[in-house]
Structures are given as structure tokens and as C-alpha cells.
């Protein structure tokens, strides 16, 4: 696949939670259209890192540039970047008081200022893309976990973002629902979307990712294309981790 310009640039990103040094100098770039899978043990800072990219977490040192805009305390910059970056959470975080369609159209109407008709048209397109247009008038509480997560993907896509962040999208799902979500993600990846995904789905990493980043203790230990990463890991820590998760 042909990759474009650098769309995310992280330069020596540090973050502390109190005394705990979560991110200890992350330096990497992501190109347009690239699919990056981030793996690592829990507490290694991988979720925190992707949450700094749309400023759900604030970084305290270093530089993050997303789509040419640097993230700093300027609220306008943050809003601008959040418009271009979609996010899918582990716990779905759908708005329970709104229907599926309202969930998907909320941000396009109020942030993009599209007309209701246009927003609904795009919302239906995105719901069709994740294969649940028939659930549009239901409330999130009436859907299964897999369906909810696909609605969450549609909600993020309805803003027509340039980058999608996935924060362990399948970890809260029953095993039989994981595939439908991974299929939606794979379809998205094939359409050329820039994707950063924290996940434990090694099959997805191997088949779909352009690059795998291994996190440990707030540092990037290793970043390689998936075939190299899984077959010839370089670092001892990576080997140990892989031996524990690949049975």
C-alpha cells in the first residue's frame, strides 16, 4: 500500500500521573493511510499514548503534531484536531439517552454544523458500512456489545475523520462478537484510513497492520512490520511478551 505524508508526529512525549512516569519520551511518526497496532503489557502506557493524540490526556513535555497542527493548550487547536480524529473506546461510551441515529448525527450536526438531512444521510451510510442500518432507531441499551461497538465506530466515522484511534475495542466483548468488530476495522483499514489501534488481537495485527509497536514501561521497545515483529523479534522483552501471549 502506498503511504502518504507524515500525519502524526510525536517527538519526545513525556507524561506523568503524579510521580508515575507513564510516557518516557515517545518519538515516532505515523504516515497517512498507515495501520499501526500497539501492543504491550498492561500499564505500559499504550492507551495513554493514543489518548494524548486527541488530548484526552495532556502530555507534559515534548511535541505532538497531528495533521499539521501542534497540540498545545490552545482550545481551538484541540477542537480542530478532535474534529479530524475519531476514537473508539473499550467500553463503547455510546450516549444512552440518544438513539443510534442520534448518537451518530450528534457531532456532525453540532460540530460540523451540517444540516440534519445531510448528517442523517451520512450517518446511514456509515451504519451501512458497519452493517447495522436496521438498528438506527433503537437505543444503545437494546443492542448487543458487538453492535454497540460498531455503532461507536460509525459515530466516529460520521465526522469523516482523517485518523481513527482504537483503544482496546474488543476487550469488553464476548468472544463471538469480536469478529464482527474486527471485520469492520479491517474494512476500514483497506479503505485507506490511518488507524492507530491498541489491541490484543494478534491475528488482526499480523494480517492488517503495516507496523506493530511494542510498548513497555512507557517506552517504545520495538517497532517493526508485523511479519518481522512476530517471526524475528529483536529484544528479549518482546520475545518474553510474545511467548506469553502466543500459545
Amino acid at each position: 500500500m502506498l503511504l502518504g505524508e507524515d500525519i502524526i508526529i510525536c517527538n519526545d512525549v513525556h507524561k506523568w500521573f503524579g510521580d508515575f512516569h507513564v510516557l518516557q519520551g515517545i518519538t515516532t511518526t505515523v504516515k497517512e493511510g498507515e495501520v499501526v497496532v500497539i501492543i504491550g503489557p498492561s500499564g505500559s502506557g499504550k492507551s495513554t499514548w493514543i489518548r494524548t493524540i486527541n488530548r484526552l490526556e495532556e502530555h507534559q513535555r515534548g511535541q505532538i503534531i497531528v495533521d499539521g497542527t501542534e497540540l498545545n493548550n490552545d482550545l481551538r487547536n484541540i477542537q480542530e484536531i478532535r474534529r479530524e480524529v475519531g476514537m473508539v473506546f473499550q467500553q463503547f461510551n455510546l450516549f444512552p439517552h440518544l438513539t443510534v441515529l442520534q448518537n451518530v448525527t450528534l457531532a456532525p450536526i453540532h460540530v460540523r454544523h451540517w444540516s440534519r438531512e445531510k448528517a442523517e444521510e451520512i450517518a446511514i451510510q456509515q451504519l451501512e458500512r458497519v452493517k447495522i442500518p436496521e438498528q438506527a432507531s433503537k437505543y444503545p441499551g437494546q443492542l448487543s456489545g458487538g453492535q454497540q461497538q460498531r455503532v461507536a465506530i460509525a459515530r466516529a466515522l460520521a465526522m469523516q475523520p482523517k485518523i481513527m484511534l482504537f483503544d482496546e475495542p474488543t476487550s469488553a466483548l464476548d468472544p463471538e462478537m469480536i469478529k464482527e468488530v474486527l471485520d469492520a476495522m479491517q474494512e476500514l483499514a483497506e479503505s485507506g484510513m490511518t488507524i492507530l489501534a491498541v489491541t490484543h488481537e494478534m491475528g488482526f495485527a499480523r494480517n492488517v497492520a503495516n507496523r506493530v509497536i511494542f510498548f513497555d514501561q512507557g517506552n517504545i521497545v520495538e517497532e517493526k512490520p508485523p511479519d518481522v515483529f512476530f517471526d524475528n523479534p529483536e529484544h528479549e522483552r518482546t520475545k518474553l511478551f510474545l511467548s506469553q501471549i502466543l500459545h
Binding site: L56, R82, F89, N93, L106
Partner: peptide
């Protein structure tokens, strides 16, 4: 839950909008 605030922020709603909507 905190996730509601995060989801509202992540789709780009401003603080006032996420409160109101």
C-alpha cells in the same frame, strides 16, 4: 461515568455542548 465526558470530547463537542447535549 467518565467515559461519557471522554466520548463527548472525542467527537469534538465543546465543553458547553457536551454538558448540554
Amino acid at each position: 461515568p467518565k467515559g461519557q465526558y471522554e466520548a463527548a470530547m472525542a467527537v469534538g463537542l465543546s465543553t458547553a455542548q457536551s454538558m448540554r447535549l
